[in-house]
Write a protein that binds this DNA or RNA. Sequence first.
RNA 1: GGGCCCGUAGCUCAGUUGGUUAGAGCAGAGCGCUCAUAACGCUUUUGUCGUAGGUUCAAGUCCUACCGGGCCUACCA
Length: 572
Amino acid sequence: MARILITSALPYINGIKHLGNLVGSQLPADLYARYMRERGHEVMFICATDEHGTPAELAAAKTGEEVDAYCARMHDEQAKLADGFRLSFDHYGRSSSPQNHKLTQHFAGQLRKNGFLDEVSEKQVYSVADGRFLPDRYIEGTCPNCGFEDARGDQCDNCTKQLDPTDLIDAHSTISGSTDLEVRETKHLHLRQSLLKDKIDAWISSKTDWPILTTSIAKKWLHDGDGLQDRGITRDLNWGVPVKDGENDWDGMDGKVFYVWFDAPVEYIAATAEWAEANGKSEADWERWWRTDKGADDVKYVQFMGKDNVPFHTLSFPATLFGSQEPWKVVDYIKSFNYLNYDGGQFSTSRGRGVFMDQALEILPADYWRWWLLSHAPENSDAEFTWENFQGSINKDLADVLGNFVSRVTKFCRSKFGEEVPAGGTYSDVENKLIADLAAKVAVYEGHMEAMEIRKAANELRSIWVMGNEYLQTAAPWAAFKTDPDAAAASVRLSLNLIRLYGVLSRPFIPDASAAILSDMGDADAAWPTDVAAAMGTFEAGHAFTVPAVTFAKISDDDREAWAEKFAGVRT
RNA sequence: GGGCCCGUAGCUCAGUUGGUUAGAGCAGAGCGCUCAUAACGCUUUUGUCGUAGGUUCAAGUCCUACCGGGCCUACCA
């Protein structure tokens, strides 16, 4: 039995996430966590909301709430949706937790002690009307280069020229529209990543089995231009982790907080500490996941994230851990994802384009989405959601191939033998060959799951479902029943065991439907089939079951068209 | 401007270190079955592997250029 630590990139607190966000980290992480638990490994699956930063403050201001109240409310909402999608986190934490405050400040103290922090005086734009420093993206004006009127503070979208906010003509705050901006001198802490460049470079280079997407992004940042640059880790904001050196105040840093990208990854650790507290565990219980000097040596740590998060997980966070010069567990494998597009374009929160997590659950059960999203996960390149494709996959894979198999077998059994596993007959060559083929395919499936090859795993699982229909066609128990009822009984007995097998194998992908199937089959706690041949003999004659209700309903053309229209956008 | 990724059947995608007639699922066509959610099974049609060069006995696979799509470029997280 192995110990596996799994983290999903933290969803930002600002708003409900769309299906692209879901499939980019949390959902595949959940698949992996569920599978590893099925295989008897000890799993710690952690996620949390990322709550700090300017966007959170602005979103709260918009609703009129205090920022902490806003975050608390949104956290609950996101937690509820995560639950709705059956994301099986061991703990769903909050980056604003006391544990994260403490740990973030601890890391800062360690980095300071070890010479990895610099105090740098920099000039930033301050908006008098807004009463806050403005990140570049909240400043717009006319590009001095091309005259484009909506150039952002960091770059002109029209001529792509890099800009400094002070270059802009008629610069104004996009928050209030105020042009009363001034450049103020302010002091910030910089993480001296440049000092750790060689160490990180060597570390990344040793990860030859990571996805190209992951390593190429990391190497680009390491080698481009002057190489890995130092980065500011503090901000002039109210909402966040106050800058401290461990538990001590930090001279000249009053009123400043750590910047989100610094405290967010630390929350992976802090959330595990939150888990310990919430479950009456001790400090040692979470440290054995994170401290290699306290039992985490044998932990395999896997991170899941979208490609936008790769730099933070390959560079900044490792720099924090290495720089602490303490024995923290560093990630062993990073599984990164491309983006999911929506019907030829991007999902858009502001334009209400695409399907968001709450809306998805309103129209269909979680399993439908889980199956489609996972079997189309954007692993090698950006993927595309279309309603036609979604309808086709659900109807064919879930309703026809799997659902109808369950239905035809159980109903046939009920009508000929009653609602219990029939006695009589023995398995012949056909059945034995099926079992051997199944064993081989299950092994392939397991291999893909171990390797986090999600699409391939889904594909293999589907082909295992197909085998059931192929077998029935060959055995034709409805025909055999007329001349050799014992042979029909043996076929049905095997098929009922096959349904049970499908229930178990499918659980990581479609947990609710699988649970329903297994429950109806009278074996809710079925264990993973480490021995497929043995598993196929689990149900013996006389075992009672009930015919399941329709496992997966089909999506009609009318529904598809209505949804396509409903989610096309323009909602504000 | 720089960097990275992608471009394979109508659609969604596989194609390991270059090696015989390029694959799967869906859609289409035909046949079969009738237990089942008009479901299932079998057979089958379709490709100048983005374009143009190059390396090689051999290229979807390597190199160069170009075209098209996407992402990143450090203050979105």
